[in-house]
Simulated scan of single mutants.
Amino acid sequence: MKDRLIVALDVDTFEQACSIVDELGDEVLTYKIGLAPFIGYGFKIIDYIKSKNKRFFLDLKFFDIPNTVELAVYQACMLGASMLSLHTIGTKLMIEAAIAGKKRFEDQTGKAGPILLGITILTSMDEDSLESGMFIKKPLGETILGLAKNAYDAGLRGFVASPNEAKLLKDSFDDVVVVTPGIRMGDSKDDQKRSNTPRFAIENKADYIVVGRPIIKAQNPKQAVIECIKNMKGEM
């Protein structure tokens, strides 16, 4: 199961990030680099992760005009990312541009590009915030499915989804990869509104899970990883 676990390196400094990678050792194969660590020390931590023969998910949630997104995806491919994220609300043209950026990299290098992952509705949002913040009055599941279908029709074959919607996407579309954030070992008292356990996510057909704070803020992060993997297997 450890090949299906992604640990989010959401810490303040390069030194803290390196310390986590060193401490977790062989227990973790893939790390997520989001906006904050990328702005703070992104290229350094990418080089460090690669030096340890680990993979990285570059979670920058691209959302811009198609030409800019195509260029950004191409450059991210050149960095060696195994996964990239983009907002599906960016329309078919933007998604097609992202796919074109990946294809340009593959045609030039002969290497396989990263999995492109479409974000529908962030796990920090629920139906109330969808209506009050984005002025969308449709049910949450219907909105997620509509955005995903639009992206799927444009050629996207990967999605980011909360534990609650992973099965919805896997059952609705053929040959898609689903990466699930919002993982918590118990009740969440933070900004995640659609969270659940590792076991629930795996049983709900997630291909990968992303875990940040429950691991990196634990007293013993390595033990937290071990317990997370046991939970994924249904052993606790």
Rank of each mutant, 00 (worst) to 15 (best):
K2W: 13
K2F: 13
I6V: 12
L9C: 01
D10K: 06
T13Y: 12
T13V: 00
F14G: 10
F14E: 12
A17W: 12
I20T: 06
L24M: 05
L24F: 08
G25M: 10
G25S: 08
V28Y: 08
L29T: 14
L29I: 13
A36F: 12
I39T: 10
G40E: 07
G42H: 06
I45Q: 04
D47K: 14
Y48F: 15
S51G: 10
K52Q: 14
F57Q: 03
F57Y: 11
F57I: 02
D59A: 00
D59V: 02
T68Y: 07
T68F: 07
E70F: 03
L71A: 14
A72L: 04
Y74W: 11
A76T: 05
C77N: 10
M78R: 15
M78W: 14
L79V: 00
G80I: 09
A81W: 11
A81D: 09
M83R: 04
S85G: 06
L86D: 03
T91S: 11
L93I: 06
M94L: 02
M94E: 00
I95D: 02
I95R: 04
I99A: 01
A100Q: 06
F105T: 05
E106I: 10
E106A: 09
D107I: 07
D107N: 14
T109K: 06
K111C: 06
A112T: 15
A112E: 14
G113T: 11
L117A: 04
L117T: 03
G118T: 03
I119S: 05
L122F: 00
M125A: 13
L130T: 02
E131N: 13
G133I: 08
M134N: 06
I136Q: 02
K137T: 11
P139I: 13
G141K: 15
L145F: 13
L145G: 12
L145C: 07
K149P: 00
A151V: 07
Y152S: 07
Y152I: 07
A154T: 05
R157V: 04
A161V: 07
S162K: 02
A166Q: 03
K167D: 09
F173P: 01
F173C: 03
D174M: 06
D175K: 11
T180D: 05
P181W: 05
G182K: 01
R184S: 06
M185S: 10
K189M: 10
Q192L: 03
R194E: 01
S195H: 05
E203C: 03
E203Y: 01
A206K: 05
Y208P: 01
I209F: 15
I209C: 14
G212T: 01
R213M: 05
R213W: 07
P214M: 04
I216R: 00
K217T: 10
K217Y: 14
N220R: 15
I226M: 14
C228V: 13
